[in-house]
Simulated assay, not measured.
Amino acid sequence: MNENFINTWVPNSELGRIRSLREPIAKRREREGKTFDTTHPLAQTIIKAWKTGSKKGSPVDCLVISPAFELMGRQLVNDLGKDSRNRGLQSDAYYLTFLKEALNGRQPGLGNLILTSDHPSQNVLDTFSTPIGDHQDYTVVVIDTIAFENGGTLTIDIEVGRGDGDGTFYLLNGDKKLSTKEGIFKDDILAWVWSASGETGQITHRFNQGQLFKLGITGYSDEEEVCVNAFRARISVEPAEKPEPM
């Protein structure tokens, strides 16, 4: 860490996360003549973190937030011991690793799907919805292939549910944004597939070095009302062969 790193505490209760405390806190603020601006970008990022990654409750969330108020990492204090043991590290060493991974853009604790040589494939079960007016809604899956230093082939096998709404699946580099207004720029799309309701599809993409990818999913329907459908995706990497030493 350096002089640009700021460590601060923001009680979840002050932001309204604990339902039973909302009324007492509101009365206390009224009595003291104080307000708490939950529309501030920092407050909004913290509230976003509650809905990102694990949905388990925890008395404290350790969050890494950029100067631009982007959520970079999340660690539940209740899971610190378990997560440390899973990585074979002491708690303090694991916490430092968590901070470093967040600052390196790996977004730990934010629900990313992490693929490694020991676990080269994982399944995702989620939903997507059709746009609301001009607002394009995306379901986003971040895929971490950083462990594959020599690259490989990323394959995404998709099954769309039988509900209303077809799905369009876009594969992007992890640093690309999914605009709810402007759509996706053609040059940002690495690969894509359209899968109608009840049908399957596949995306394949060859990459030369491990990185973060972003899978964005949105729906389409002829119905005027918003439609929601489910999808299942099996995401896997076939690693490239290591180059022979010269």
Score class of each variant (00 low, 15 high):
residue 85 R to D: 15
residue 210 G to C: 08
residue 118 D to S: 09
residue 221 S to V: 01
residue 38 T to E: 13
residue 96 L to S: 04
residue 98 F to R: 05
residue 180 T to V: 04
residue 213 F to A: 04
residue 173 N to R: 09
residue 213 F to K: 04
residue 142 V to K: 12
residue 118 D to K: 13
residue 105 G to P: 05
residue 150 N to M: 01
residue 85 R to H: 14
residue 7 N to T: 11
residue 197 S to A: 14
residue 142 V to D: 09
residue 37 D to G: 08
residue 111 G to A: 06
residue 207 F to I: 02
residue 198 G to A: 07
residue 5 F to K: 05
residue 2 N to E: 14
residue 113 L to C: 07
residue 139 T to Q: 11
residue 198 G to D: 11
residue 207 F to M: 09
residue 123 N to T: 13
residue 76 L to S: 14
residue 74 R to N: 10
residue 173 N to S: 12
residue 212 L to Y: 03
residue 60 V to Q: 10
residue 219 G to C: 03
residue 106 R to K: 14
residue 179 S to M: 06
residue 184 I to G: 01
residue 56 K to L: 09
residue 75 Q to S: 06
residue 11 P to Y: 01
residue 109 G to M: 03
residue 12 N to S: 09
residue 143 I to N: 03
residue 20 S to T: 12
residue 108 P to H: 03
residue 55 K to R: 14
residue 124 V to D: 06
residue 16 G to A: 06
residue 82 K to L: 13
residue 238 E to D: 12
residue 204 T to S: 14
residue 219 G to T: 03
residue 74 R to Y: 01
residue 239 P to C: 04
residue 124 V to F: 04
residue 237 V to G: 05
residue 54 S to T: 07
residue 189 I to A: 07
residue 171 L to D: 05
residue 8 T to D: 09
residue 85 R to K: 15
residue 233 A to D: 03
residue 150 N to D: 15
residue 101 E to D: 14
residue 46 I to T: 03
residue 52 T to Q: 11
residue 162 R to E: 14
residue 181 K to I: 07
residue 234 R to S: 10
residue 95 Y to Q: 00
residue 236 S to F: 04
residue 154 L to A: 10
residue 187 D to Q: 13
residue 161 G to E: 04
residue 13 S to G: 07
residue 223 E to C: 01
residue 127 T to L: 04
residue 114 I to W: 02
residue 214 K to M: 00
residue 230 A to Y: 08
residue 21 L to S: 03
residue 24 P to W: 07
residue 158 I to R: 02
residue 196 A to I: 02
residue 48 K to P: 04
residue 184 I to S: 02
residue 104 N to K: 13
residue 94 Y to Q: 00
residue 148 F to A: 05
residue 127 T to I: 11
residue 218 T to V: 07
residue 52 T to Y: 02
residue 186 K to R: 14
residue 159 E to Y: 08
residue 129 S to W: 08
residue 189 I to N: 07
residue 117 S to D: 12
residue 191 A to C: 07
residue 72 M to I: 01
residue 4 N to M: 08
residue 41 P to E: 06
residue 88 G to N: 10
residue 23 E to C: 00
residue 128 F to E: 04
